[in-house]
Write a protein that binds this DNA or RNA. Structure first.
Lengths: 205, 205
DNA sequence: CGGCCATTTGAAGCATGTCAAATATCGTGG
DNA sequence: CCACGATATTTGACATGCTTCAAATGGCCG
């Protein structure tokens, strides 16, 4: 079934917008993201992809889909490569698998819409807290958290592009959180020092 | 197959968050929206639903899904009500229908993610222009546009909640567009007076 | 005609953006 | 292992888009 293990270096483009989805990938190691670019260089990150995520799920659902975003490695990544049609057959072989797959896609959709609400209706402090909690939850669920610490390879610019903010402002907000003893990023690790306070921050900002 | 025609009045809630999806609807007449509410009353509209759209598609894909948003009528609406399981069987009867359905869901997902990029990386003028163009395109495709005019029942507050703005600011932006002779809203109609200019506005803002 | 709701407008404040410089961190080659 | 260059973070001063709040105006429906 699995036909190859691929590697990309940090910042490399995995799939271009509108490119044919001839292969579908699962992310084995490293972080990636889906993003859209504007002509003038502005970037919006639609979602982060963590180990266990599927890249270009759309290829499993339909044929000849014009990908409305680009997929890019944020760190060095290793991928498992699959044939979309073969994967399609596997997924739709049993009703149970189909529903499992559907749940994954719907979860991703819900995640994007939570982000939409965060950007639209929260201040920087609130949406940043929400983003961190989301990453924390996901990594924990996949057994990739070490207690109160997670690997965190994102640059502040990546966070900014995910939240519709400026790197400068993300920095100021992170500094605030560190000063308050809520959380701290250093050496590609994120440490939550006061989870209760982080949850509170996420809710009322 | 179709078991009932339902009506809701403007502003009524069609489906609450976390409510069981015991029925799935198609929107026959009127406009609705999907939105999330915060404790303090802030609202983010995730998407507008126009005649022809399906409300609570999730019910077709999986069982026992916890709806992460609320569905609400924006105008008086008439719906066709369906049993999710029956609809499921119909959709997955043939490969062709399944793919058609998948395309619809992916289109909705892409639409939400365009909105995400609009809110995150455009100014009020740009995202407003994008929104109007999107509505225009969709209504045209469904044969519901009258040349350069469309029905437009949204209040400025609805637009604000969709774009993460304030009603006051939406108003100022609309006034600007009217003064520039680009477009105009009045009497629940939207008239595009200069489509080229509207497209330009959408791109470089 | 009257009441209600939506729109419009103004003045002031604030969150975030912009730009630029200083500092820290990281990877790499010597 | 160190030094260097490149890249990322941090910080400051200032600009601005958008918000807030409140009041006035306008439109629609019973």
């Amino acid at each position: 079934m699995r036909t190859a293990v691929l590697r990309f270096r940090a910042h490399q483009v995995i799939k271009r917008p509108n490119e044919a989805i001839d292969r579908v990938y699962t992310l084995k190691e490293g972080w990636a993201c889906r993003s859209v670019m504007f002509q003038d260089g502005r970037r919006q990150i639609l979602s982060f992809m963590l180990p266990g995520d599927t890249i270009c799920v759309e290829g499993i659902c339909v044929e000849d889909y014009a990908l409305p975003y680009q997929a890019r490695a944020l760190t060095d990544v290793t991928l498992c490569s699959f044939s979309p049609t073969r994967l399609h057959d596997v997924v739709f072989a049993s009703e149970q698998q189909r529903e499992f797959f559907a749940r994954y896609v719907l979860e991703q959709k819900a995640l994007a819409e939570r982000r939409l609400a965060d950007i639209g209706r929260r201040r920087a402090m609130g949406s940043l807290a929400q983003l961190v909690l989301e990453l924390f939850r996901t990594l924990s669920a996949r057994g990739l958290a070490e207690g109160t610490v997670i690997d965190f390879p994102l640059r502040q610019e990546d966070i900014a592009d995910a939240l519709g903010l400026t790197p400068a402002h993300v920095n100021r907000t992170l500094v605030l959180l560190k000063r308050r003893g809520v959380m701290e990023i250093s050496q590609s690790k994120l440490r939550v020092m006061d989870m209760a306070e982080l949850l509170a921050t996420a809710i009322d900002n």
